[in-house]
Amino acid sequence: MTGIDVYLAQVQRRLAGMDPKVQLDILRELRSHLGDSATANGGNETAAIAGVGDPVSVAKRYLELYGYGRLYRALFAILAGILGYFTVPALVAGNEGIFPLFFSAAFLALAFVFLIWVSVRAGNQVGLIAGGAALVGRVGGLAGAVAVNPDSSFVTAEGLALFVLVSLLLVLVGWIPGKARQTWRRPSMDL
């Protein structure tokens, strides 16, 4: 394994989540550049690698440009949906014991943290979709709770209002942090 191979493997690790086709194209271009640069430097791979810069910053620039690929975006939405599903019992449990309440409250906290992370890392659009998936998950959770307990008298008007409010809050939490980051970051110097 050459120094260039090691360097490219480091970049590739940090490009995880990006569309595989784009990832391959980036790595291929970097390899081509490093080959040319090493030749121009009398075969000195270290100088060629130093000219490109550290793998973390290099990968970060590409990730900022291309973002996460479809697979990861779908994965974020699925995870948000699952988390959303398990947040429901806390709101409809009524006379249930402390464990399901605690369990779903923990999921709700986890869902908020996860959506903030997605929104910041992957952008507000991906965050919005994940928030929407969490909402769908919650609706599924509620439907499941009603199906399991046909006597759904525990679903009070206040409970439903809280359900809708928290569901919408999840969507907003998926959208706002990414949007805020986009708004407050340094202005782009693109043409």
Binding site: L30, G51, V52, G53, L65
Partner: peptide, 11 residues
């Protein structure tokens, strides 16, 4: 750094 030029080209 050449690592900044390639993303600029891709932009």
């Amino acid at each position: 750094k050449e690592g900044t030029l390639y993303p600029a080209l891709r932009r």
